[in-house]
Structure formats: C-alpha cells, structure tokens
Nucleic acid binder design. Structure first.
Lengths: 332, 332
DNA sequence: AAATTGAAGTTAAACGTTTTCCTAAAAATG
DNA sequence: CATTTTTAGGAAAACGTTTAACTTCAATTT
C-alpha cells in the first residue's frame, strides 16, 4: 500500500504562508479575508486536495454532525423504510446518518452502540434492547431515541402502538366475518405480547377463537416453515395473521403451493405494509405502521434535541388499515 | 438537556489514584498489574461507567476499526444483502460497519464520502460514481473498494460481470424459444450499457429482435408505469427483461392486471435474485448476482488490505441463472 | 491630529486518547 | 550481599482540529 498521509491543515497553512488558525477560519467561512490571503488559501487547498478531518474536528467541537441508527435487520424492508425516512431528514438538516445492522442479535448490541456513541451526536435504536443497555444509553451525554419501544418518560420514543395495530386489524377481520383466527407471532420480540393483547381485546368480546403459534425468526422462510402446522389442525383457522408481512407472505405462498385457495380456504394478513405486499398474489392485507414517517419524525425530533430545542418524550403515530385481496372473502 | 459529560480516562485515573497512562494500558490489556491497582481500576471504571472514546483513540492510533459502505439505495434488497454479507464478515473480524445511503443521488456522493473517509479504515462504494470522485478516492490514504464497477487496475473491484450476466439470461431465453425480446433498462446506471452489450452479443447471432426501453428509477413503481408502453406495441415482445427484479416484478404485476397471462402471453425475467422474487406470482426467473457473497468477499479483501496483506485488485464472481415459472412457457 | 473602533491574522490551549521513553522498586543472578 | 535484569507505573508528546484572547494596522470619529 502506497499510503500517502492525508494533507492536514498544517500543510495548507505552510503552503499558503499563513497560520493554521486562518486556514481553519477560512474553511469554516468564519471571517472575511484579504484578496491575497483568500487566493493563496484557495490555491493551496486544491493543490493539496485538502479536506477537513472530521474526527479531529469532532474532538474539539464535541459535535460530529452525524447521527447513528441501529436497526434489527436491514434485510427487512420495514427497517429499510425507516432508514429512508430518517436519512432524508438528516441530509436535509446537514447531518450524516450512519446505519448499523445488529443482525437480530440483541446480545451484540452493547458494543455496537458503544462504538457508535462517541462518533455521533445522537442515537436512534430501532429495537427492544435489554434494560441495562437502555439505562446506559439514557445516562449518555447524547440524545437517544427508541423506535418500537413502549413509551418511557426519560427517553424519546416514536412509533405506532402495537396494541392498537393488532386491534385495528382484528376489528376489520371480525367485521368481515372471520370466525377462527390464527396468529403466528414472534415471541422473541417483546412487542409480541402487546400485539396479542390487542388481538384478544377485540376477539374475546366478539367470541371468536384465537390459536397462537410462533416463529423463530421474522422472515419469509420462517413463515413458509410455520404454516403447515397451522393448516393441518382439525380446527383450522379461516384467517391467519402473521407477525409481519414477511412472515405472512411466506405463509401465504406455502399455503397456496399446498393447494389452499387464498382467501377462500384461508385468508392471510400481515403487519408493516412493506412495499412488496402489494405485489404478491393475492395482494396482502396489512396494517401500515408508518415506517418511513417514523424515520422522518424521529430524526426531526432528535435533531431538535441536539440543537437544544426541548421536545416531548413520546410520540405515537396512527396506524392505518390497508385492505387488499388476501382477506376479501365472500361469506355466504 | 441534562447533558452529563462522559467520564474520561482522566476521571478514571483520578478516582483510582493512578496515571492516565496506566488506565490506558489497563483498558487495552497491554500489561500486567498489581492486584491493588487492578482492583481500583476495575472499580473506578464501572463506578463511572467509563468506556473508551473511539474518536480520541482513532486520532492517535490512526485506526478506527470501522469500515464505511456507501450504497445507492438501501430500499433495494440487492443492496440489503450486500450489506448483510459485509456486516457479518466485518463483525467477525472485529470491525464495525457503517452504512450510508446515497439515495440514488450521484451528485451528493462526494460530501458523503468526505464525511465518511476520516471515520473509517476503509471504504466500500457500491455504485458507479463520477470519475473525479473515483480519482479522489484512489488517492486517499485508505483502502477503497468498488462494487458493480468495471475492473480498474488501481482499485479493488468485486462483483459479477454485467455483460456475462445479461448474456447468460439471454442464452437461456433464446434456447427456450422466445423470439421477440424486450429490455427495460435503467440508462442512468452505467452498467446498463454492459448489459445491453451482453444481450446483443447473444441475440444478434440468434437472429432475434431486441426492443429497448428505459425506466427512470429502478423500482417496482417504475416498472409498473413502464410496462404498458412495451405491451401495447404492435410487435409486442414475448419476453421482457427488467433492469432488475424490482422493475421486473412491477412490470409483471401490471401486465397481469392488464389481463395478460404470464408467461403464456408474455414472459418476464429480472436480474439480481432478490429474496422476494421467489414469492411473486409467477415466481420470477432471474440471474443471481451473488449479492451476499459480494459483500462478504469485498469485506474480506478490504480487511486484508487494511491489515497490509497485499491483494489482487479485481475479483469477478460467477453469476447463476435462476429458472422459475415466469419464463416457463410451453412452445408448440 | 489624537483617540477610538474595527478588521485581519496570530498564538496557544484544549479535546481524550496512545505510546515512547523514563524511573524506581522488586526480583533474579552471581 | 552486590549487581544485573525485570516489572509496574508515570511524564509528556503527539494526533488534527477549533477558539478565546491577543496583536497589528488601517479606517473612522471627535
């Protein structure tokens, strides 16, 4: 490796024949300069190809103009959309967004965040993480926000209410006339319990049955593997709700290849409203959890916090039912 | 904001009654210590909740143990998979991976990379970027790798050969018996030209016609919007190749809702083999471009470069044809 | 014309680490 | 027991910036 050292402010100063302070002020545009100095600086800078070292700058200013976002799994389009929303707002406000993927591994999150924290002005964590980590974060000298967590009074939280999301979907399905519900959840996610609560809150008063199953990872493949267990029961559900759209799509696909007609033999619904849900056959009914808006809102809030405008700690977005053909059955 | 300063090495040193050099050596495990000092240090550190400031560390060591990856669009599952592969290898080798999304905007890439460069030990750029930026990167004091670029002799490049990818697909389709080809490309991507070359190389000798169309962004929606133009032509193609799976899926979906039977009226094929292609109806024929392997390989290479093991500059992976129902037509 | 103000630049400390020498004491050697 | 070697720990410089405080010197005011 022919590893050339990057030119520093010192090199520029020397070449231009001024002090490093002057260079600093020039690149940050903090003062006016005589024509002569300005020319020399401009020339020196692009002769050397100088650009500021963000690290050194961050050290002394204490500001990085970067924000960190840790997500559970970038392969899940829900998170991609959160990132999209957040990124757009960050860039528009002069911040960089650094995304890290925790690979659905709650254990590894602490070192990841410890690495990320000093490099950023604020942290967004899109996952339920252990309490000791949450506490460590809350004690940090940086604004922190959580996504998909229940509200806490000491940290900013943005997202939809899991109970409400599940209830909304259940309500619609009950009204459609479905009688036997299956829920294929992901018990490792802590909001799974909230979703179950939401379902039960609607289904119990309506007197409909709920069978609960579990999946070991929130993916298409897991859905595929899981669905046979559900369909082969004597009291087979007439509608199956997946932990998220990925799981629902996997289940729906496998059900069809097992010869079930969707939605006539069995209906499917998901949660998240990822873009692809519109393109599967039949198009998937789901609940929009405002993925992109979540990213946008949390980024706006955290930037406001960084810039010292006080902010409310919690913010709940309104989920929206997205009705598509996967649940449009004619009941006779 | 009740902004507590993070405890520094100095705080720890004072609390433990030793010098900061000792603390540094302790946290980096570079020396043995007397029992007394070791106890005091351990206690002080977790009493204060101290953790190293990666910024300061990076300043003096010149190493960040982080690698930056800039992708065109995180919402595209192809890139998500690249990230997945890269992340896994990075973590396994003690590096952090910071991902930034350039939002399909070539213009904004330079400042993004300038921000990323000093914070990382190496940079991976998953996009064709303007030559001046490429040159700037190549002159940097860091290992740099490109994805999806044609090979260059001065920088590391990993990926499949676009010409070969297109040719592979065309070959199979010709052999299937398709006679009129449509290609809906994305001319803003510079590998579009390579793919066209690959198609022509196969189609011209075979004497089959090729109609070329263009899409203004590589998404489902753009595919949807584009397909009518193709289908309404008097010399309608009997097979349509999309710039990538996303475009192909959008087109296929819209074609079906316009009443076309796939693959009997018109067949579709994509490129990338994103996970969802298996789940659409009919399942999509495509070419696997080794998304995840690309991420893994490039990360291994760049880590080797960082750690000063010399590496070859270019590496081409073998694409694989994935045959599914979207092109399985019975020719009579 | 003397005094005041303002503009353009400079000096030096600071940010939180690591690391190269040093020193002093302890342990090993003869 | 005197000498040498090893070990545990410390002092201070360095990394590339920003910024507060200061100096000049020219322009304005009285």
């Amino acid at each position: 490796m022919n590893r050339r050292r990057r030119p520093t402010i010192r090199d520029v100063a020397e070449k231009a024949g001024v002090s490093i302070a002057t260079v600093s002020k020039y690149v940050n545009g903090q003062q006016s300069f005589s024509q002569a100095v300005e020319d020399k600086l401009r020339d020196a800078i692009d002769a050397l190809g100088y650009s500021q070292n963000a690290l050194a700058r961050a050290m002394v200013t204490g500001r990085t103009t970067a924000i960190g976002l840790a997500v559970m799994d970038l392969a899940n389009p829900h998170y991609s959309n959160v990132v999209k929303g957040a990124n757009r707002v960050a860039l528009a406000n002069g911040y960089n967004l650094f995304v890290v993927d925790m690979e659905e591994s709650i254990a590894a999150v602490r070192p990841l965040l410890e690495a990320l924290a000093p490099r950023t002005d604020g942290l967004i964590v899109s996952a339920r993480i252990p309490n000791d980590v949450t506490d460590w974060l809350a004690e940090l000298d940086k604004p922190v926000a959580f996504l998909g967590q229940p509200e806490r009074d000491d940290v900013l939280t943005v997202g939809t209410d899991s109970v409400q999301v599940a209830a909304l979907l259940a309500q619609y399905l009950v009204r459609q006339g479905f009688k036997r519900f299956g829920y294929v959840g992901y018990s490792r996610a802590s909001s799974n319990a909230d979703r179950l609560r939401g379902l039960r809150r609607v289904l119990e008063p309506a007197g409909v049955e709920l069978l609960v199953f579990d999946v070991d990872e929130p993916t298409n493949e897991a859905g595929e593997r899981a669905v046979a267990r559900v369909l082969l029961r004597p009291d087979r559900p007439d509608v199956i709700i997946g932990w998220n759209d990925l799981v629902a799509i996997g289940m729906m696909n496998e059900a069809r290849s097992l010869g079930f007609k969707v939605p006539d033999d069995v209906a499917f619904a998901g949660i998240d409203n990822i873009p692809i849900s519109r393109y599967v056959t039949p198009p998937l009914t789901t609940v929009d959890v405002c993925s992109q808006a979540t990213g946008e809102v949390v980024m706006k809030k955290i930037i406001a916090m960084i810039e010292d405008k006080p902010q409310p700690t919690g913010l709940t977005l309104e989920p929206a039912l997205i009705i598509r053909e996967s649940t449009q059955r004619q009941f006779t």
